[in-house]
Design a protein around this nucleic acid. Structure first.
Lengths: 192, 192
DNA sequence: CCCATACGAGACATGAATGTCTCACACGGT
DNA sequence: ACCGTGTGAGACATTCATGTCTCGTATGGG
């Protein structure tokens, strides 16, 4: 069967390339195909063999990004249990895909693709519902809207990814930095 | 004196154009010169009359951005008084230039210009010192590093700018959303 | 050991953005 | 009313990323 040899090696490469591309494009949207290829450790020709063109690459990036984030979202089970713990789980789950999240967050105004926006809005809605639930339970401040908390979550995760990449914070501390700041703020309190 | 007529009108236009360019490029780094010109309400020819090319435009954007942010930083007098109040003042002052801040923050890895990085590091150091001072006074948590708090501040201000631009939060609430989340976090507390 | 498959390197054409130019016009001051 | 200055519109040439191609090579399975 000629199909087998083809389906065995392609997926791993594809995902690795897209991961590298997301990390690069999140912080340098003007990167050329050549730079993207180099960042993934492959040649430009091979990059074109896997993705018809830049548009196709960005499209695949968006699709995989939405898929990965939704997987992490599901794994974090944010609808269950204490919302505060749920936020911690969500941050922990989302950190490994911070590159994709930063890309989706920063470049989503670039998408007129309805399929992409649907996925992103589904994620938005899911995360926003967590904060709304926390507010209804009296655990989260009411003066900060769910929409804003959602945006802040994305922004902080993206920021932590960049900071870790540049060595400004330790990678192992990233989760703590994001969730603690988001949850408790920076003011020192007595009960902590 | 032929110089007078030239120095009277140029500065206002320049700043207005750069402001529009910052707002646009912060969320769409791939914008063409034509799009930038249109967003500033001028023609591409005029844009080229003021800035030799795209590089020169970006350079001027960086210089003005650093200058504006340093002005706001000075106006906020963050070295004086209660660090917590200083953070509030800083956020209030910085919000009007959130477009520039988002541009500088998001695209600073794009700069190899030493002059630019010097200015940006000066800002970084100044803001970081505020958080360090707050920690020494026992007002700010010690498990969140000044470098991270600085990054988080930029990220949240940028996020608030985009959110306001897209109508996800009200512009008048932006300052409150940023400073309250940054300072106190999202968890509802008894003393608030 | 051989063959298939994917890859890297590089040449090449294409197209879009860029940068430069000219010309006509609107406006503001004299 | 006139003239100077700055502008918009548009016609170019040029540069550069992009997309497609070929060829030589390495690797891995049969």
């Amino acid at each position: 069967m000629s199909r087998m040899g083809y389906s065995r090696l392609m997926p791993v490469d594809r995902e690795h390339v897209l991961h590298a591309a997301a990390d690069l494009l999140a912080r340098k949207a003007t990167a050329s195909m050549d730079e993207i290829a180099k960042s993934a450790g492959i040649s430009r020709a091979t990059l074109h063999r896997h993705f018809a063109g830049r548009d196709a690459l960005v499209q695949a990036l968006g699709v995989l990004g939405v898929q990965l984030v939704e997987e992490r979202l599901a794994a974090a089970r944010i609808d269950e249990g204490d919302p505060v713990d749920a936020v911690r789980r969500l941050v922990t789950e989302a950190l490994p895909v911070s590159g994709f999240l930063a890309f989706l967050y920063g470049e989503n105004q670039l998408f007129e693709s309805t399929a992409m926006n649907e996925g992103w809005e589904r994620i938005d809605e899911h995360v926003g519902a967590l904060f709304r639930r926390g507010q209804e339970l009296g655990l989260i401040r009411l003066d900060l809207t769910p929409a804003w908390l959602t945006e802040a979550l994305y922004a902080l995760i993206a920021a932590s990814g960049w900071s870790a990449q540049e060595g400004r914070i330790a990678s192992k501390d990233a989760g703590h930095m994001v969730s603690e700041l988001l949850l408790g703020g920076m003011i020192r309190t007595v009960e902590k």
